[in-house]
Write a protein that binds this DNA or RNA. Structure first.
Lengths: 150, 150
DNA sequence: TTATGTGTTTGAACAATATTCAAATATGAA
DNA sequence: TTCATATTTGAATATTGTTCAAACACATAA
């Protein structure tokens, strides 16, 4: 047994997919070379970043999903991007945004379970200097992710 | 001019992509038939939902991104999914979660600009019975989306 | 209006890739 | 060990992506 599964999941999270030109051509009834030309144009403009897979995260041991709100110390207000970039590096992190309102950052995180999430908060979030408060909003049910209804 | 672009964007948001088996095979140095077998298994298990494109949303006129927190009236606590599903239908909605804490729902929305977002709130959100309060957290900067760093 | 340059569409030929199939191998349970 | 089931793999085939050159569309300026 070669245990290919985790390797595939890792690759599919950030790419290793490609458009189905022939199927699109059939669907909208245009020549495949026209589709090809237009897709390449979108890619060259940078409008399309990558092609990737969307998972049923429960089935790949990432069923625990949390929105984490973060408030920074006033001294960090001028460079919130430093902390944001550090946090974005980690594979548990689906998204990172600087936002308006009572909190400076909002992260979407995926972990296997509560324990794994606790470890992430303990080892990554709480070690980051400049964070003053956090608040976890645990997802009880995900109805739509990445524009995909579940 | 056939204006293929918007059609492609629509299709790529929810699929019409496929894994690059040969490239994966080269990357992890395994026969492509082995990769093929393992991918089909993941698909049949339902672990992989779809293959799709991730965009630079600013370049496809969806640069305005908001996290919308929603509190429900106590009478809706028993059926939060009804409202959640209604909201999830709309194409502006990237994600919908039922969450713990001070709010019942969190939505991630993408629109062209503030005006278009306002129209969505006015026409869709505020018409939904059972919503008691909302709070918008506007994204000032997106550092990572859908596991893709920007 | 016509001329000119640029961007888009398209079919034909070709290159690369996905898929099928059958055989070999591995794995776990009795 | 034996058996049933799951996984790996190469060879053949089917399907798809890509290249290329020509035709066409569109905008601009003379």
């Amino acid at each position: 047994m070669k245990n290919i599964k985790p390797k595939l999941i890792k690759l599919f999270k950030e790419g290793y997919c490609t458009p189905q030109i022939a199927r699109i051509a059939r669907t909208i009834n245009e020549p495949s070379t026209t589709i090809h030309y237009n897709i390449k144009k979108l890619e060259n403009e940078g409008a399309i970043r990558i092609y990737k897979a969307v998972f049923d995260y429960k089935k790949i041991n990432e069923g625990f999903c949390v929105y984490l709100l973060i408030a920074l110390t006033p001294s960090e207000y001028s460079t919130p991007e430093r902390i944001a970039k550090n946090l974005a590096k980690h594979e548990e992190v689906e998204s990172v945004d600087l936002v308006t309102g009572d909190w400076e950052l909002i992260l979407k995180l995926r972990a296997k379970d509560q324990d794994e999430y606790y470890n992430f908060v303990k080892n990554v979030v709480s070690r980051e200097k400049g964070i003053v408060t956090t608040k976890s909003m645990i997802s009880l049910k995900q109805l739509k992710t990445e524009f995909v209804s579940l």
